[in-house]
Design a protein around this nucleic acid. Structure first.
Ligand SMILES: [Zn+2]
Ligand SMILES: [Zn+2]
Ligand SMILES: [Zn+2]
Ligand SMILES: [Zn+2]
Lengths: 132, 132
DNA sequence: ATCGCACACGTTATAGCATAACGCAATTGA
DNA sequence: TCAATTGCGTTATGCTATAACGTGTGCGAT
């Protein structure tokens, strides 16, 4: 379950995300990589697919964007649900995990005999700096 | 905080969603309403905006779709977080609320001085009927 | 060695989701 | 009556994501 060596394109996309202040859309990533030879969206999406699979990047469904995992050394796939607080002013994202929320949701799903596969927990609002 | 009388377009969109088995995309709704005179996506999106504002429809961010609220008589805006379990086989959606999850997340956000405004909790997987 | 396969990559085209910007009509309330 | 608000219709455009096709490279099995 360790992350394979990244290919050239995967590495470029990962570097852009790692250096970014906040989440980026696929097309923003594409623009930032034009100088390195990127020409088409698929080059970005294919790299993102792998990075998501490896668990080193997360997708933020509510804003159609991607962000580097905040816990590069652990493996985010292994510790259950991941939640995000997304500031609508500055774009910053706080990633966090909570086992109680995790267990509570999982218990409920089990009671419904629902087999969970992917989860999305995203809270939009304003961070400490940006709140009035 | 009661729901205003719906306009013609809002009513048509709401009826389509209420009769649907599961969530629908805006363009699917548009197709279902062509016979009633709908011609352009904006007619759907504008109605959806209002229905979302009134809390009688929810948006499922992870599948770019919309679903009628499962609790038509209560007001979903009033009882905190809403969560959805979405079956990837049959498309069915189970909507539920859990105050413990709610409080736990809100406490965490408060500890970060993060002002929450909108939330998304969506679990994709397979429902009891569709699970192998 | 060479064949077959898996995988990454490049390119073009297309599909799917959402909004900008304009103008018109009906309603409301000062 | 006038101004402001709201809903509506239309055209055009922008943003997000994938289909489909072909190329090249590495690598194990025959
Ligand atoms: Zn992570
Ligand atoms: Zn902020
Ligand atoms: Zn609801
Ligand atoms: Zn199902």
């Amino acid at each position: 379950m360790t992350t394979p060596v990244l290919t050239k394109n995967q590495g470029l996309v990962f570097d852009v995300l790692t250096r970014a202040e906040g989440p980026l859309s696929a097309y923003t990533i594409l623009d930032k990589l034009r100088d390195q030879g990127f020409r088409a969206p698929l080059q970005v999406y294919r790299a993102l697919d792998k990075l998501l699979e490896y668990g080193v990047v997360h997708r933020l469904e509510s804003i159609n964007s991607f962000v580097a995992c905040a816990h590069p050394h652990e493996n985010c796939h292994s510790h259950g649900l991941v939640a995000f607080a997304i500031c609508e002013s500055c774009g910053q994202v706080i990633e966090f995990h909570d086992h109680e929320v995790d267990h509570r949701l999982m218990d409920w799903l089990k009671s419904q005999k629902f087999k969970a596969e992917k989860s999305t927990i995203e809270i939009r609002g304003h961070c400490a700096n940006c709140a009035a």
